[in-house]
Amino acid sequence: MVDHGDDIITILTTDHREVEQMFAELETLRGTGEHEQIRDVTEKVIIELVKHSVAEEAYLYPATRKYLPGGDALADREIAEHAEAEQLMKDLEGTDTQDPAFDGLLTTFMAAIRQHVLEEESELFPQLAKHADADELRHLGSRINAIKKVAPTRPHPSAPDTPPANKLLAPGAGLVDRIRDAISGRGKD
Rank of each mutant, 00 (worst) to 15 (best):
T97F: 04
F102D: 09
D7A: 08
A182W: 06
L88R: 02
M89K: 15
K167C: 14
E93P: 01
T32C: 03
A101T: 03
D135Y: 00
P157A: 04
P152C: 08
H52R: 11
A151L: 09
L49P: 00
E78N: 14
V19F: 05
A151G: 11
A170H: 07
Q98A: 15
E78G: 10
A80Y: 03
D103N: 12
P62K: 00
I8S: 00
E78R: 07
K44Q: 15
V176E: 05
A159D: 06
A132V: 07
Q87V: 12
T14P: 00
H16F: 07
H131M: 07
E48P: 02
F125Q: 04
H4C: 01
F23H: 07
F125N: 03
P69H: 08
D96Q: 10
L124W: 04
L12D: 01
M110D: 05
Q37F: 08
N145V: 08
L169E: 13
H82W: 12
E119N: 12
P100Y: 05
D7H: 02
H4K: 00
S142Q: 14
L92P: 08
E84T: 14
A101W: 04
P164K: 13
V50T: 14
L49I: 06
G94H: 10
E57C: 07
D177Q: 04
A112R: 15
Y61Q: 02
I9C: 01
T28W: 14
E120G: 03
P163E: 12
P126K: 00
M22Q: 13
S122H: 13
P171I: 02
L60H: 13
V45C: 09
T13C: 04
A170D: 04
K149V: 10
A134Y: 02
D6E: 01
D161M: 11
Y67W: 09
T95C: 09
E84C: 01
R180D: 11
E81K: 01
T28M: 11
A85L: 13
L68F: 00
I79M: 09
T162K: 15
R154N: 15
